[in-house]
């Protein structure tokens, strides 16, 4: 009976289970778990965007930390320096980052494969240098502190407990939106572009526009996440937006199975937990990330979660197959 349900509605069950678990965690009263899960939720939003871009549309980006950082900095500067309402600042950050992605998207997507990877990497590094060097606006390497909290009608999102629900609210919204995009006409166009750009073109899909739109969408997600990150820490500095974070995002998407939104969230969680566990031992976490990237890409090009999911499907169908 339970197994039958698992077989017929695996996704709905998983969503329900996830929401229940997530809702309970803060009540365990362990502040550490709550704060780790907040960061996971924030990273997951960026990873979901990257998964739409890399997994579904087949376009690599090694500079996604740039969009994340841009969102964070715009929110921080507007709300702290110019005293704009934090929500409005966040909206402005998302709009500006999306516009930026549109602007760079058209020239960048004239490149493919290797060259696209390099161009996005260069983009990430240029923005990172700007965050660090334009002292008068960004506060330079030491960053900006005193970013205000988010609040709704006097209700401050100042404690981890409150912020946790805000972050996961946004994260689940982003997951639901992404799932429905993947299932839509747009999602089919994305997969067509991934499969073969020329074939997609001949069927009337404007590949260039599809790619730029997906980039802009993922940049918007990254800006939401970046803004929430700043409002959570009430502080912003260049360090979290470096090349290593761009690569970490790729690791999350790869571990999660590239073309799977759930996988991306799982990947974000797994990578974060790994680095929490391993970081005390120096840079051991980076060693493991490197190994993971190599091993996963060599053994299961579709990613870990997909590989495990395939095994699970085989297991379930063997158990439930009517015996003849």
């Amino acid at each position: 009976m339970v197994l039958a349900l698992v077989r017929r509605r695996p996704k709905q069950l998983a969503i329900a289970a996830l929401i229940v678990v997530l809702a309970i965690v803060p009540f365990l009263g362990n502040a550490y778990y709550t704060s780790v899960l907040i960061i996971i939720g924030i990273n997951a939003m960026v990873a979901v965007g990257l998964c739409l871009l890399m997994g579904y549309t087949g376009q690599v980006s090694l500079g996604h930390a740039a969009f994340y950082g841009l969102g964070a900095y715009i929110s921080a500067v507007l709300s702290r320096t110019y005293h704009v309402n934090p929500w409005l600042a966040m909206l402005a950050a998302v709009v500006a980052t999306t516009a930026f992605a549109f602007a760079v998207g058209f020239p960048i997507f004239r490149l493919r494969g290797n060259y696209l990877a390099m161009a996005t990497l260069g983009l990430g590094i240029i923005l990172w240098i700007l965050f660090r060097e334009v002292d008068s606006i960004t506060g330079g390497p030491s960053g900006l502190s005193g970013v205000p909290y988010l609040s709704i009608a006097g209700f401050n999102f100042s404690s981890d407990f409150r912020f946790y629900y805000l972050v996961w609210g946004f994260c689940i919204a982003i997951m639901v939106i992404s799932e429905s995009i993947v299932a839509s006409r747009m999602g089919r166009a994305m997969r067509a572009v991934h499969g073969s750009e020329s074939a997609a073109q001949s069927l009337g899909v404007n590949a260039a526009v599809v790619k730029v739109k997906v980039l802009a969408l993922s940049a918007a997600y990254a800006a939401v996440a970046g803004s929430l990150f700043t409002y959570y820490l009430t502080f912003v500095s260049p360090q979290p937006f470096d090349f290593l974070f761009s690569v970490q995002l790729v690791v999350m998407a790869v571990v999660g199975g590239l073309a799977s939104i759930w996988g991306a969230v799982f990947g974000a969680g797994a990578i974060r937990v790994l680095s929490e566990v391993l970081h005390p031992f120096g840079e051991l976490d980076v060693v493991v990330f490197g190994l993971l990237l190599m091993v996963v890409m060599i053994l299961t090009p579709q990613g870990l979660v997909r590989g495990i999911a395939d095994l699970w499907h085989r297991f379930v169908s063997v158990r439930l197959a009517p015996t003849r």
């Binding site: 990330f289 490197g290 990237l293 190599m294």
Partner: peptide
Amino acid sequence: ISLIIITIGAALFIRA
């Protein structure tokens, strides 16, 4: 793309 990601992984690994 996979090969690029593999060499990035290798670079991270060696550097760390």
